[in-house]
Amino acid sequence: MVTVEFLGPIGRDNMEVEADSLEMLSKILSKDEEIAKWLPKCAVAVNDTMVSDKNMKLKDGDKVSILPPVCGG
């Protein structure tokens, strides 16, 4: 079970999801129409570290953060 948190403007509560890889997580999240719209422009962090490897494995207790387009300053 991993926790998915949606940061910034997405405006969705955390979700607990059964997924053991980013790929599996992608399939699950894409089923939610609203979230699916965000995914193409969102970066991802696992346990507060930005990730870029699609094939990354996930383990129980991991936290996955979804980060929309940014604009600091």
Partner: peptide, 28 residues
């Protein structure tokens, strides 16, 4: 990782037009 909103009549409006997808966006 900072998200900007315009405040107009007290309402927060995400400034998506001025926001930039971070490196690695679209991975999911």
């Amino acid at each position: 990782p900072i998200w900007k909103y315009d405040v107009i009549d007290g309402k927060r409006v995400y400034a998506e037009d001025r926001s930039t997808p971070m490196d690695g966006a679209g991975i999911l």
